[in-house]
Design a protein around this nucleic acid. Structure first.
Length: 335
RNA sequence: GCACAGGUGGCCGAGCGGUUAAUGGCAGCAGACUGUAAAUCUGCCGCUCCUUGGAGCUACGGAGGUUCGAAUCCUCCCCUGUGCA
């Protein structure tokens, strides 16, 4: 799932995402709440209509911002007080508030408000963080279920109502993770996510946590690992049975000049590509690789041209989506 | 021709007697990026040599001079900009 935090998958227009075959993109509750404001988006018919995206959307709850904006927030049982990174103003987020905002935005999938536990976190800290996430999961679900019918754009949601996913936390402690998963499943969410991974821990640990939790999540509901990963990682997780993943890596790295290809990483800024007439990835069928050379992409990057970010991002997203398409084919072939 | 103001490392531009191979910025080279405070951040960036650390050399228009010591002070010369003729 390409990440479109502020109502755009940075540098790429919606029609291009469609043509690349993206079926679902993300939006972010915290960022859209601050700007342009969830009420404004609600008045304009919801997030799908506002950004003109006809396919599925998922909004993250703002839980990750509890983690990433740690310098600007204060966490209590009730919720989180944030200082806006835009203007310094103070805002209070609770699970109920996050649900209200996400209901106003109207994405197909909303996420429970959680606390993304930092790494490293000792057991006491992980337990405390998990306690908070569990309490917030309950409150998120109760509030969501009792309010989601207040605002629904059924056309945008394919005639359906919104769904809510729970998020498994527990630091890097397998037993805490399992305990969390079991309790979330009892609450009966519409889907389940594994969060708090790829926050600095070794890769084997990430894999271990996923492997521990996945078997406890119902197979007939979507299983989503949040915030991963590198090309080889998403392929591996998908083969384990993960249905959904999102990551800023393909888009952010693209804007910074890093292309993921069948031949590995290509840092398109490198001098060695200055007159390289080959496509970014000879094995790639994406519109960028069909038309442009490494030399041109390097030039755009060097010249600071906006098109650079656009073309690089299109390629990386095509590469990522291609991995998933291939794995899906392989998995289907096995059954 | 006269009067001011200037000439600093690829470029712009600080420094105005020692802690200065010389602040910054740009350009250049390389690296990082994992539910986006990211078109961002980090490192290198005169030359040569050895292992980190260092050693040597060459540098602030040119040539002299003052001084223990000069990009910084003095003299002359060259060049640039602006103003007046």
């Amino acid at each position: 799932m390409p990440v479109g935090t502020a109502g755009t998958v940075k540098a790429v227009p919606q029609e291009t995402l469609e043509s690349l075959g993206a079926e679902i993109i993300l939006g972010n509750t915290y960022h859209l709440y601050l700007r342009p404001g969830h009420e404004a988006i609600r008045r304009m018919g919801g997030l799908h209509r506002f950004i003109s995206w006809p396919r599925a959307m998922l909004t993250d709850s703002g839980g990750f911002q509890v983690f990433s904006l740690s310098q600007l927030r204060k966490v209590t049982d009730e919720g989180v007080r944030f200082r806006s990174h835009l203007d310094g103003s103070s805002h209070f987020f609770t699970p109920e508030h996050s649900m209200d905002v996400q209901i106003a935005l109207g994405a197909d999938i909303a996420m429970a408000f959680d606390e993304c536990t930092e790494y490293p976190a000792d057991r006491t800290r992980a337990e405390e963080s998990l306690r908070l996430t569990m309490a917030w999961a309950r409150r998120s679900l109760d509030h969501f279920r009792s309010h989601r019918d207040e605002v629904v754009w059924r056309d945008e949601l394919g005639g359906q109502t919104q769904n809510l996913f729970g998020i498994v936390q527990g630091g890097m402690y397998a037993d805490l993770r399992r305990q969390c998963a079991e309790r979330l499943v009892e609450m009966d969410f519409d889907g389940y996510a594994i969060g708090g991974l790829s926050v600095g821990e070794p890769r084997e640990m990430t894999l271990e946590m996923i492997a521990e939790v996945l078997p406890l999540l119902p197979r007939d509901k979507p299983r989503y690992v949040m915030g991963v990963g590198y090309p080889d990682e998403i392929e591996r997780y998908a083969k384990l049975g993960v249905d959904m993943m999102d990551c800023v890596l393909p888009t952010r790295a693209a804007r910074h000049g890093l292309l993921f290809t069948s031949e590995g990483r290509v840092n398109i800024k490198n001098k060695k590509y200055a007159e390289d007439q080959n496509p970014p990835d000879p094995a790639c069928a994406c519109p960028v690789c069909q038309r442009y050379s490494r030399a041109y992409l390097r030039h755009l990057m060097q010249a600071g041209e906006a098109l650079s970010g656009t073309l690089n991002t299109i390629h990386n997203l095509a590469f990522y989506l291609g991995i998933m398409e291939r794995v899906r084919g392989e998995l289907a072939g096995q059954e």
